[in-house]
Write a protein that binds this DNA or RNA. Structure first.
Length: 264
DNA sequence: AGTACCACCTGACGGC
DNA sequence: TGCCGTCAGGTGGTAC
């Protein structure tokens, strides 16, 4: 689930119902979610404090902690935030819970345990340590042009490379390329000016609209490829059938007619 | 450098 | 109904 739009939705959720309330208790039922920090230090950094602001860079969600430091959350493949009332039944696979004094709670749920949480002192250190490129929504047209020009790989792999630009994963890379009518196997550096322009415009449009629709696939347009990720499915534009291939172990979908293998 | 493949985990789904 | 293989929107390490 969690690519840039999903994480942005989680950020807004946290900003709406998780800030400016003192954290009475920090629950960490299983420390495998914690990376590079002990349960004691993690809980100690948050207990009796408030979260004062939220931020996001790529697929990472941040929350400033009153008095210093930042809570950092990554959602892996299956993670999400569940703002809840402490009396309502707890969702299974809850890995973290911030108990606020007023009875509300912010739960971090992640069935596959591929997500992670920590606390850091400085955000720019974290971005550097994780080797993250600029956030995909902060990338200017010139930035994207340079990223593509400097890459020797395929355009799909480049969009998904978090060190080049942060936030785009398997699903949204396919969608952006479909909307921009560019074949996923094209070499990034071989795109012409028109294609780079389309790619930049569609990156912003696809991510922006997905955020507006709460990153809920059912609320996204039926004309999007995302709703038709199936080998042999009909192209949403009516241009033949959707094709499938494996790109370094990930399932990739595209329309060979809409997204030609060259710009010839 | 780029790509393929495995590992980390768990759950859902289709075939038998 | 139960078992089994396959796949899943992420990332990191290793081997070509």
């Amino acid at each position: 689930m969690p690519e840039l739009p999903d994480v942005e939705v989680f950020r807004r959720r946290l900003a709406h119902s998780g800030l400016h309330k003192s954290i009475a208790r920090v629950e960490v039922p299983d420390t495998t979610v914690l990376h590079g920090i002990s349960r004691q230090r993690f809980s100690g950094a948050l207990r009796s404090r408030q979260l004062t602001a939220t931020g996001r860079h790529g697929k990472y969600l941040y929350a400033a902690i009153e008095g210093g430091g930042y809570l950092v959350l990554h959602f892996g493949m299956t993670g999400y935030l569940d703002p809840r009332d402490r009396t309502s039944p707890r969702v299974s696979h809850t890995r973290l819970a911030l108990d606020y004094g007023d009875g509300s709670q912010m739960a971090y749920v992640d069935s596959r345990r591929l997500g992670k949480a920590t606390v850091v002192d400085r955000l720019d250190d974290h971005v550097a340590d994780e080797d993250l490129g600029p956030d995909a929504l902060e990338l200017s047209h010139a930035d994207l042009r340079d990223v593509l020009r400097e890459s020797r790989g395929t355009v799909k792999a480049t969009l998904m490379d978090q060190s080049r630009m942060a936030g785009i994963g398997n699903i949204y890379s396919d969608e952006i390329l479909f909307q921009a009518r560019i074949g996923p196997k094209r070499k990034a550096a071989a795109l012409d000016d028109t294609e780079v322009h389309r790619l930049h415009r569609q990156t912003r449009r696809v991510l922006g609209l997905a955020i507006d629709r709460k990153a809920d696939p059912e609320r996204l347009p039926d004309g999007w490829l995302l709703r038709h990720r199936e080998d042999g499915a009909e192209c949403p534009r009516g241009n033949g059938t959707v094709a499938y291939f494996k790109a370094s172990g990930r399932g990739a979908y595209y329309c060979p007619t809409c997204q030609p293998a060259s710009n010839g």
